Amino acid sequence: MSGENPVVLRSVWPSIGFDLVTLRLLTAAAEESSFAGAAARENISLSAVSRRITDLEARLGIALFNRHDRGVTLTAAGEALIEHLRDVFVRFERMVLDMEGFRKGARGRVRVHTHMSAASSTFPTTLADFLNRHPAIELELEEHVSLDIVHAVRIGTADIGLISGRVPTKDLEVLPWHEDELIGVVPCDHPLAQRDSVTLADMAREPFIVIQRDSALINLYREQLRILGITFRDRIHAASSASICKMVSAGLGVAILPSSSVNAQDPSLRIAAITLDESWSSWPLAICYQNRENLSMAARLFVDFLLAQPPVQPAVNRFARSRLADESGAATS
C-alpha cells in the first residue's frame, strides 16, 4: 500500500559463517555417509572434516548428522540443508562454466526445438551466422509442433523452444520474437488465384492440405470454421510446409500457412499465395525456456542473438500470378 515502507530482508547467512569448503565437505560426508569417506574424496584430513562440520553445527545450533559406529546419516535439518546446497552448487558450476566461456570463447551444447514457421525463411541463414560466430557451440535442432515443444522445454529435454505465440505456456518464460502473417495458398490455376485477398470461408469450399493434427495452426482455423458453422475438410496431413506447398501445386487442395514458410519454397511451384483477410491472420512467434537464470551461457547467447535479428518481413508471394501472365502471353504470341 502507498505510504508504507517496503520490507527489507536482511542477509543472515554471513553471521553464521558459511564457507564453500565446509559446505563442500558437508555434501561429501552426506553422499559418502562417512566423514572418513568425505576426507578421502576431498583430499583433506579426517580431523579437519570433523572439526569444520562440528563448528558449523555449533554456529547453527542444530545437529546436521547422526553419528554412528559405521558412519553418519543426515538429520532432518541436514537433509533440508543438503537439498538447498544441490541448487547452490549447480549455480556455482554454471557460474564457473560461464566465466570459462568468457575466457576461452563460448562453448557448449544447446538443444533447440522449433516450430515449422520458425524453421522457415531466413532461419537457416540465422543459424549459420550464429555458428560461424560461435564455432565452439553445438546446436541440436529438432522440428516439432508447438504443444510438443512446450512439453519438451518444461520437462528439460529441450533448452529453448521456438513456438507459435498462440499456444499456452503455463510456467515457462516467453519472449515475443517475430510477427508473421497467415496467407492462403492455392494452385496457380485456381479461380481464387486471381484475387487480391481471400477469407477462410472462400477457401473452405476446397479440401485442405494441413500440417500435423495437433499443430497450433490447424487448431486455429478448425476453431474459426466451427464459429462459421462450416465443416472442416482436411484431405491430407503433411509433415512440413514444403510438402504442403508441393501438394497444393499438384492440385490436391488448398492451404493456410505463414507467409515466411511459403516464401521460402521453390519458386517453380505452381502456387499462388494470397492475402488472408481475417482478423486472426497475424501469426506471432515466440521463444520459450524454463528460466533464463538456469540457461547455460551458450543458450543465453543464442537467445540474445535471435532477439537481435531484424524481424522477418511478411510479404505475399505473387510469383504465380506473374508466371500465369507470362505463360498466357507466350501462348498467344
Score class of each variant (00 low, 15 high):
8 V>T: 10
12 V>L: 13
13 W>Q: 08
20 L>D: 07
30 A>N: 03
34 S>P: 07
36 A>Q: 13
38 A>R: 02
38 A>D: 00
39 A>E: 07
39 A>T: 01
46 L>R: 13
50 S>Q: 14
55 D>S: 06
57 E>W: 03
59 R>I: 02
60 L>F: 11
63 A>Q: 14
67 R>F: 02
69 D>A: 12
73 T>H: 05
73 T>C: 07
75 T>G: 13
82 I>P: 00
82 I>W: 02
86 R>S: 01
88 V>N: 03
91 R>T: 05
93 E>A: 06
99 M>D: 12
111 R>H: 08
112 V>A: 01
116 M>T: 09
121 S>T: 11
122 T>G: 07
129 D>L: 04
146 S>L: 07
153 V>R: 08
155 I>E: 15
159 D>Q: 11
161 G>F: 02
162 L>G: 00
164 S>P: 01
167 V>D: 01
170 K>Q: 14
170 K>W: 12
172 L>E: 02
174 V>T: 14
174 V>C: 07
174 V>A: 10
175 L>V: 11
175 L>I: 11
175 L>C: 04
178 H>I: 06
188 C>K: 07
189 D>E: 12
191 P>S: 06
194 Q>N: 13
199 T>A: 08
201 A>Y: 09
201 A>W: 08
207 P>H: 15
213 R>K: 15
215 S>F: 02
217 L>W: 08
223 E>N: 07
224 Q>Y: 02
226 R>Y: 09
230 I>C: 05
237 H>G: 12
241 S>V: 14
243 S>F: 06
245 C>Q: 13
247 M>C: 09
248 V>Q: 13
253 G>Q: 04
255 A>K: 10
257 L>G: 03
258 P>Y: 01
260 S>G: 12
271 I>D: 08
274 I>W: 03
276 L>M: 02
276 L>P: 00
279 S>Q: 08
281 S>T: 04
284 P>D: 00
288 C>D: 06
291 N>A: 12
295 L>H: 00
301 L>M: 10
304 D>N: 14
307 L>W: 05
308 A>R: 11
317 N>E: 13
318 R>D: 05
327 E>H: 08
